[in-house]
Nucleic acid binder design. Structure first.
Lengths: 218, 218
DNA sequence: CCATAATAGGGAGTGTCACTATCCATAAGG
DNA sequence: CCTTATGGATAGTGACACTCCCTATTATGG
């Protein structure tokens, strides 16, 4: 199919498709002439993924491009590897500002201690590690005293870990093709985040309603 | 204190403070002359909160303004009320696009059923309710078949609810002043979100490492 | 008292992001 | 053959979060 049909079938304007091509969100079509190219199912699939990542997850174009680049670079790896690479590409690499080196070092140490306490089999370049360091720096900075001891975070780790058992099936069926697994993993990661955060807010409300102890001033 | 000192002590440039004043993120200073005004501790506190909400949580200016407006409008309410209002103001109000009315209706029904299954004492205008509807619409749209039955979400609700018990203390000490409680609640809500999401990614990695069952093709 | 610096308030300018529109030299299709 | 479409490139748009600059005062040190 050519541009017009790709646009019609995906629901994305041609101008936007061209923009995505420029930004590397879409591989170029198969050229049939200096000014003609043929697009296929993979382009439709990718446009659908772009829409999900932009409209539902709100990811910036640059991040989506990074995820796709990582996916394409590692399509020969084993499933756990390329999944990890793709999900990891969702996060910005850690950039420590000159004036906050100690704050990051402290957070980094605390994260390492936490992972040790949890006994998790993850290393510092696993997806989420740098995000956790960044997040802990933020908490330290603006709510100092909230995480004074690393072990305070352990219940959160254990709880979230129990969710992982529900989210990720025990077995991986190799009959399902790689790109479907990838799509599922990346989308599952980002589309479920707002679900969890919204549930957390609602849980807070329920928790407060069950706390009869908003003692009145007397 | 006046502009220069407010800027120096908060670390926010004067041009930015003026911008925040225009956008309603800061209440105007006490005017002492047509071109002079006096700022106080409340302005310093607020600038600090703005920094946290912008730099650590990445919230847009308009959202921060909405939170402050809600806080100011409800400063006479009881603690559970104004906390709920403030945290609720963190979310955009639900806007249903013309062409997705059924999708939202379906998600709304599913959220209602979920809350019933969980037995939570929350109503549809609680903070997070609309976010959950939006998030469920997103999952339905881009990962159809993932949430076919509402009860699949129950474990997530229960798990997150158990976190709420850890996060929110049993009692609220009225000796602590309102604005500190508010700051703590709003910041606690948003600063802990990235911690949870990062832990989730790490938990996924650990889960996958414990899943020996990435069966090889044979 | 006066020269200099600082101030509130407002408008305009900047850089980034994610598109969106226009142009042009081909190419496709009836 | 002639209208329409295409790929590639460049420019423009609107939202956002500042940032700069201007002006008529006002504060302040000598």
């Amino acid at each position: 199919m050519r541009m017009a049909e790709l646009s019609r079938r995906s629901g994305v304007p041609t101008a936007t498709i061209k923009y995505y091509l420029r930004e590397g969100l879409l591989p170029p079509g198969e050229p049939t002439a200096p000014n003609q190219a043929e697009y296929g199912q993979q382009h439709l699939d990718r446009l659908d993924l772009v829409r999900a990542l932009r409209e539902a997850a709100g990811l910036p174009i640059a991040t989506i491009a990074r995820v796709f680049a990582a996916m394409d670079r590692h399509r020969e790896d084993t499933p756990p590897e390329y999944l990890s690479i793709a999900v990891g590409a969702l996060s910005e690499p850690l950039a420590v500002p000159e004036d906050q080196i100690e704050a990051y070092a402290r957070a980094q140490a605390q994260v390492a201690e936490l992972l040790h306490l949890l006994g998790w089999n993850v290393d510092p370049d696993s997806p989420g590690h740098d995000d956790l360091v960044r997040a802990v720096v933020g908490v330290h900075r603006f709510l100092p005293g909230l995480i004074t001891e690393t072990k305070q975070l352990v219940p959160f780790g254990r709880t979230v870990r129990s969710l992982a058992d529900v989210e990720i099936p025990e077995t991986y069926d190799p009959a399902v093709d790689r790109s479907a697994v990838l799509r599922f993993s990346v989308l599952g990661t980002v589309l479920f985040e707002p679900v969890l955060l919204a549930l957390r807010k609602l849980a807070h409300t329920d928790r407060i309603r069950h706390t009869a102890a908003w003692r009145r001033r007397r």
